[in-house]
Amino acid sequence: MRVLVCGLLGLAVLTGCGQAPAPTADGGGATVDKVRERETVIATCMKRKGFSYTPSVSQPKKADANPADHAAMKADRAKNGFGVFSAVVYPKPPETRAPDPNQATIDGLSGAKRESYLKTLNECRVTALQQVNGLKVTSVADYQDQMSTEIENIDKALDGDPELVELAAPFAECLKSKGERVTSAKPLALSVRGMVVWGEQSERLGKAGTVTAEQARPYLAKEITSALVDLECGKDFYAAFIPKQRRLTNEARVKYGFQER
């Protein structure tokens, strides 16, 4: 479940997923200030307990384009499909992040000193979450569990949304009429159906060894065709689903102290 938390909300240092999150370039300033304030509280708490800690907030990122824009989605799918085999055909360099300024300190400790530092750091993180974000958490593990529950609630809200349920039915029927595999007509399942189907295909191909770009190209061509069919069948569905999913996810991100996306 912890991987799910990191992946869906894009959470970082407080959950052990990486560095503190970057603010977006077009807003979320209040949340960014909360991140800075929280980092300062952690540093003060650590100093009080005899440890050094450097507050860390990564640089702003450019805001994403409207993810529900049909023309942009169509252009992206015409090149990348669902994003499965395109990752092999058009590999992207790994995302680089500024190193955590506290990692060197942690790496320089061993044994009991390292355990004491990390234990104290987690205690100070909880203190910061309580003071700055007003969260009723008792430990970092409790924080992670609460976020996992939040994600489950988002999933339930999307699958139980009357408008999405109504739009999902014709979306699923259209896909079936086009020969696409549909195992569930629930909104959340339909939203990730293509990635799941082609992800399974990628896994099967990968069992024979490393997949090269040349091997992946014919699969990508078929994936693109499938992705465009999916988008055309789900045009009305995605126009409603994506904004609702983003709104609920952003509400969760703000609640747990991270910037909107």
Rank of each mutant, 00 (worst) to 15 (best):
M1D: 14
L4W: 12
L8E: 13
L9I: 05
G10Y: 06
L11H: 07
A12T: 10
A12Q: 14
G18D: 07
Q19L: 09
P23C: 05
T24P: 15
D26C: 08
G28I: 01
T31G: 03
V32M: 12
E37H: 06
R38Y: 00
V41T: 04
M46Q: 03
R48P: 00
S52I: 08
A63M: 09
M73Q: 15
M73D: 06
K74W: 12
A75E: 14
A78G: 15
A78L: 11
F82S: 00
G83E: 03
V84H: 03
A87I: 03
Y90F: 15
T96Q: 15
T96E: 13
P99S: 04
D100L: 02
P101Q: 06
Q103T: 07
T105N: 10
E115T: 15
S116D: 15
K119P: 01
C124P: 01
A128D: 00
Q131L: 14
N133C: 05
G134I: 10
V137R: 00
A141K: 13
D145E: 12
M147H: 01
I151T: 05
D155G: 08
A157T: 13
D159W: 02
G160H: 03
L175R: 07
K178G: 04
G179A: 06
V182M: 07
A185L: 03
R193E: 05
G194W: 04
V196D: 11
W198T: 00
E200Y: 11
Q201R: 15
S202E: 10
R204L: 13
K207N: 02
A208P: 01
A208Q: 12
A221S: 13
T225G: 15
D230C: 03
D230P: 01
E232R: 12
E232H: 06
C233G: 03
K235T: 12
K235G: 01
D236C: 02
F237I: 08
T249A: 10
N250A: 02
R253W: 04
V254W: 00
V254E: 11
F258W: 07
Q259T: 13
Q259P: 15
